[in-house]
Design a protein around this nucleic acid. Sequence first.
DNA 1: CCAACGGGTCTACGTCGTATGCCTACAGTC
DNA 2: GACTGTAGGCATACGACGTAGACCCGTTGG
Lengths: 233, 233
Amino acid sequence: MAVTPTPTRASDRDAEAPSAERLSLERMLACALEIVDRDGVEKLSMRRLARALGHDPMSLYRHAPNKAALLDGVADTLLRRLSIDPGDPDWAGQLRAFARGYRQLALDHPNAVPLLVTRPLATPLALRPAGTLRPLEDVLALLTGAGFTGAAALHAYRSLTGLLHGHVLNELQELVDNPDETDDLLRLGLYRLPLREFPLLRGLAAELASYDGAAELERGLDILLSGLTPGGP
Amino acid sequence: MAVTPTPTRASDRDAEAPSAERLSLERMLACALEIVDRDGVEKLSMRRLARALGHDPMSLYRHAPNKAALLDGVADTLLRRLSIDPGDPDWAGQLRAFARGYRQLALDHPNAVPLLVTRPLATPLALRPAGTLRPLEDVLALLTGAGFTGAAALHAYRSLTGLLHGHVLNELQELVDNPDETDDLLRLGLYRLPLREFPLLRGLAAELASYDGAAELERGLDILLSGLTPGGP
DNA sequence: CCAACGGGTCTACGTCGTATGCCTACAGTC
DNA sequence: GACTGTAGGCATACGACGTAGACCCGTTGG
């Protein structure tokens, strides 16, 4: 009582901890994204996030109802960075730009991609955070403005997100291997494969190693966009 | 000491617990898949799995090195059910059948889909379990046998998995909503959306509700397969 | 008979998400 | 100024988690 020990006291402005400023959802999400980028989704915990922010774990619950909402929020902050101009008459160009932006987002935050592709499976459409729904609404506006029927616009949006999710998952798998190793066989770990069972796969080391994601996406977009017409599906 | 209490003793053959038979990786994976199907991936824990099998949690580690391997194993048991006949001259038909099989797998085990699409991001290609690599090797055999170059066959496989991942993620999002509610607006929870911000989305309840996944996939396959040629990418 | 070993179990450690409850600082009202 | 609400932060606590380390028993091969 005399010396008022309280050794874990972190108030009195900002001391001891990295940054014990006032908490807010934005600060939380930004810090959570950093953790995900650095260490992966499974390493993001409420306690680690609180520690990184210089706060008590329970403080986070004043700003987010639970961890699932936080994960949704991280995905949301990423998607929010993509924008579509619904008024642009060049609708194909807008879709293409959106797709390129999405790919770049995935490359810049590969550890967050599992969130981008799987969080929607956990939340009914209408309960998703606004940033996730914004692109959908904007694409609908863009395409109906260009003469698409509602159904055709919706179909186009689905085709686009399908293409993007599939492409991004494909491209990121190429990055899993150890890029320090120069020899393709070693870098991909292909020497571990039983030659008897996977002869063709082992022989394709060079082709596996040289994957041009940007070109791949453009080809997919060419096919998709040329198949989209205002008329029908 | 006198009465030999040991109330949690589960040996002496199989007593007390549901099924304390001899443990094996196959039994573990089958049971793990049941848990995932019933309760979702995040509810699958080593302790729950052990309990369901009537064993001590640590027993599992005699058959799997860690939980990540178990997750990979669950994905593997699913993919292992798909087969491709590399000798079939109708390569397009084989790819189509594979795609339909994959879709059906996803519909039968929606809770396992996150594993199917994200586990590959956590494991370098050559370290993936054999069941995951089998389709790749078989598609390579199928297509090179049909005159494709190795690079073209690899490209085709990537396009196919991209299409499948994207499609399955799309289709499963439609199932997240409550199917008991008959009115589309209510069923999708769209009434929660601010009308001012999402006018088009709200108006598309009917189109959102009527989604024909099978037809959608076939259309994607038509486009993909017509674009694939033995010559090049 | 013994040694090795594969498979099962027990205990224990550190971490996780979060329910509950209290404390403090400020806002608004009189 | 005193009073009261409220929002944000903190301490404590509970049950579940993944898994390291040691022990134990039954089988097998010498």
